[in-house]
C-alpha cells in the first residue's frame, strides 16, 4: 500500500500552517488532530449531519468529506476563528442568548452554517433559515431555539435592535 506523504499549506483562521499529511487524511482530522482545533466535530462521518462544517474559501462545507490535500492553498475558517479577541460572533451570542443548544454537539456546525447564510442573506425568513440548516442535524431536536438564535443574530448583525 502507498505510504506517500504530501506537504500542504493551509490557512486556518488567518494562520498559515505547513504540514505533512497522508493523502487520505480528511480535513476534519487534520484540523482536530494535527492542529488541535477540536471545536469542529465529527458526528455521522457520512456527509449528512453537518457537525464538521467549516468555511473553505468562504463557503460552508463538510470537512469530513474533503481530503486535506484538496484544501492545499485554501483559507479555512473554523468555529475557533469566529470570535474577535474576547467578543463572541453575533451568531455565537445568539445561540447563548436564545438557548440554541442542548447537548452542544451539533452547535459548531450549526453556527458555521448560520454564519454562511447570514453573509449572503442578512434578512432570512424562518423558512430560509430552516432550508439553510438542512445539512445540519440536531439529535436533541432543538431546532426551534436554533432558528430563534439565528434570527436574533441576524437582527444584531443588521443593527436593527438598536432602534427598538
Amino acid at each position: 500500500m502507498n505510504d506517500e506523504r504530501i506537504t500542504v499549506g493551509i490557512t486556518v483562521n488567518g494562520v498559515t500552517h505547513r504540514a505533512v499529511v497522508e493523502p487520505r487524511t480528511l480535513l476534519v482530522y487534520f484540523l482536530r488532530e494535527q492542529l488541535g482545533l477540536t471545536g469542529t466535530h465529527v458526528g455521522c462521518d457520512t456527509s449528512q449531519c453537518g457537525a464538521c462544517t467549516v468555511h473553505l474559501n468562504g463557503r460552508a462545507v463538510k470537512s469530513c468529506t474533503i481530503f486535506a490535500v484538496q484544501a492545499d492553498g485554501a483559507e479555512i475558517t473554523t468555529i475557533e476563528g469566529l470570535a474577535r479577541d474576547s467578543a463572541l460572533h453575533p451568531v455565537q451570542e445568539g445561540f447563548r442568548e436564545k438557548h440554541g443548544l442542548q447537548c452542544g454537539y451539533c452547535t459548531p456546525g450549526m453556527i458555521m452554517s448560520a454564519v454562511h447564510l447570514l453573509q449572503a442573506n442578512p434578512r432570512p425568513t424562518d423558512a430560509e433559515i430552516k432550508h439553510a440548516l438542512e445539512g445540519n442535524i440536531c439529535r436533541c431536536t432543538g431546532y426551534v431555539n436554533i432558528v430563534e438564535a439565528v434570527k436574533w443574530a441576524a437582527e444584531r448583525m443588521r443593527g436593527d435592535h438598536v432602534s427598538r
Binding site: 473553505l56 468529506t65 445539512g135
Partner: peptide, 9 residues
C-alpha cells in the same frame, strides 16, 4: 441536491 454544504462542494 443534498444540502447547502454538499451543493457548495
Amino acid at each position: 441536491i443534498g444540502d447547502v454544504q454538499v451543493r457548495n462542494r
